[in-house]
Design a protein around this nucleic acid. Sequence first.
DNA 1: CAGCATGATGGGAGCGCTCCCATACGCGGC
DNA 2: GCCGCGTATGGGAGCGCTCCCATCATGCTG
Lengths: 369, 369
Amino acid sequence: MPAARAEGGGKSGPAKSGPTLEQVAARAGVGRGTASRVINGSPRVSERTRAAVQAAVAELGYVPNRAARALAAGSMDAIALVVPEQENRLFAEPYFSEILRGVSTELGDTDMQLLLTLIRDQRGRERFAHYAAAHRVDGVLLVSVHGDDPLPDLLRDVGMPAVLSGRRSHDEQLPYVDSDNLLGAQLAVEHLIGRGRRKVATITGPLDMYGARCRLDGYHEALRAADRASGPSPDERLVVEGDFTEEGGHRGMLELLRRDPEVDAVFCASDVMAAGARLALREAGRDVPGDVALVGFDDSAVARHMDPPLTTVRQPIEEMGRAMVRMLLDLMAGAHEHAPGQRRPEGPDETAGRSRLVLPTELIRRRSS
Amino acid sequence: MPAARAEGGGKSGPAKSGPTLEQVAARAGVGRGTASRVINGSPRVSERTRAAVQAAVAELGYVPNRAARALAAGSMDAIALVVPEQENRLFAEPYFSEILRGVSTELGDTDMQLLLTLIRDQRGRERFAHYAAAHRVDGVLLVSVHGDDPLPDLLRDVGMPAVLSGRRSHDEQLPYVDSDNLLGAQLAVEHLIGRGRRKVATITGPLDMYGARCRLDGYHEALRAADRASGPSPDERLVVEGDFTEEGGHRGMLELLRRDPEVDAVFCASDVMAAGARLALREAGRDVPGDVALVGFDDSAVARHMDPPLTTVRQPIEEMGRAMVRMLLDLMAGAHEHAPGQRRPEGPDETAGRSRLVLPTELIRRRSS
DNA sequence: CAGCATGATGGGAGCGCTCCCATACGCGGC
DNA sequence: GCCGCGTATGGGAGCGCTCCCATCATGCTG
């Protein structure tokens, strides 16, 4: 297929593109190699030459041709952000767009490109796997991966640097950035107990997701601690499993009310579920926070707009996005360093040390508790 | 600015990549050119040869090298989705992610790549302009463009196919996909009047945005019609300008209550503003919908989670995303057809005809009205 | 049966860049 | 004043692909 030229552009050659390195070099009165060196910041160029080339670049408005660069260098200067489609819908929207914001911000200083891939079915997954295996990107960011997703291991096997948001298990082998779900949940429940609630229930996320399990652990942790301090005792009847959906929260709340009508507080593992629970409570004629205090997780937009506004656990999502990019770039740089000759700025296991990151969570107090 | 190459990543050869066309050709026992023809679906290949090449592709797991292809063909096989950062935050989140979903879905059948660019400041804008001018992508999707944004015209000037979401004015010169803001607003206000409301106010969006003006026009239109049918008459005191933010909606509602305490209905030009207005009403001790009926615009998540759930005007956002992609691909393909020899499937002004699209809006009735 | 159109095929010529080797230059030491 | 070595520089050799033209094979016309 011919190049995408605007008809007004006259001739029909390949897409009109900017000046080439060759032209820049000519303009600066140097060789192509030298110009390339300047543009890529190689140190072995004299100051005079560097200035000349930079001037030429500015005058000509030179922009390196990515395709050519990628072809010659064997790297694509691009990373993919992979989002399983269903998750995108489930996970409250802010999660995704905040991650995106963080990623994009951090990438802004690089000339890496961000390639967005929504995977919506098995076919899409295979397609991407194929694509990645062929090294058509330099690195991959995986958002909200399920425990049974084969993609991460596949990427590792083909030597494609990848960073997960969230873990699949406590000792996730791949590099990841996670938030402190356990502590966040613990804070939430402690808060509830601190407000004098005696029957603190929880609606969990799907327990095959590690993050959801952590939140449940945090719940248990807080109750155990309170028990020792003669606070309310753990009671397994007060734990119901949800699925992060509003409908799930609604069902869960109904079930809790059935099991024990005297429930006076609920920690929901997501804001969206809290919204569902809130609805059930309204239907049951319970006042929030009068009869039942409610705490969510995520600090999504829903939380702010509920009535009353929802106390919730905030995760530094944007920062997680940024951290993921930093980690990935590190990884990508590190992957090149298998030639022992070059300088290595720090200790031996530096990369490994930087490839697991758990960011803090924070309780946001609002009127629902 | 130096390229983001892994510094010191000196050698280590290019990233391991899959088999090449050459290898596929050899394997299939044909020439490189023939293999290329098969892969690109050229018709001038015999059935036998085609099968042989396809078999070789399958066996070798061949994936064409994008960079090489782009370099040789002069097109990048990629389109950019450009999102002004502020808008992204303002516009209720669903807008963005739904557009994205649509775009991604429609792109799924192509082997175009989606390149995401958040522009957050002047520098970013220039950077992108530069980038686009150098034809580093084949087409651009622009989301939520302000009337004074120079980017669209700049893209046109450099012959870069582009499609806007929303118009900048009624007779937008660039290809766009918009929703029927006027009719949507009109429906909303007619609905309010139909419910017997007599003092129907509106909190508009920023009036330098065309879409916001359309919604205001729709409001006026409905009132004028009602006036003729001896319904409530237009009253300019019932119009306040907002800014699409929650805070703006809050302020707007306060102002309306001040101007006329007997307001009994408000059409807000966005759900988020409706949320702000709802808050102000609660503070003022007004019941919704008892004292004041409320209608929003967008049908975002906020609308469903408000108390009471918000009646609102839905735009087919995902479909808009899909339509934008279709239009852009058309445009890109059309740009090729300047050689008169080739077949042209339809009438002369076909492309122009398809480059303005206004999709219908729909009233979603909930309990706030 | 020659002559020619038609369709299939092979492979050269780059696309713009990076890598790397060869070259030219400079400079201190003998 | 010559040698050797380190440092800036030029430019060849591709990277894998598409485009296009020359080459063949084929089947038809006259």
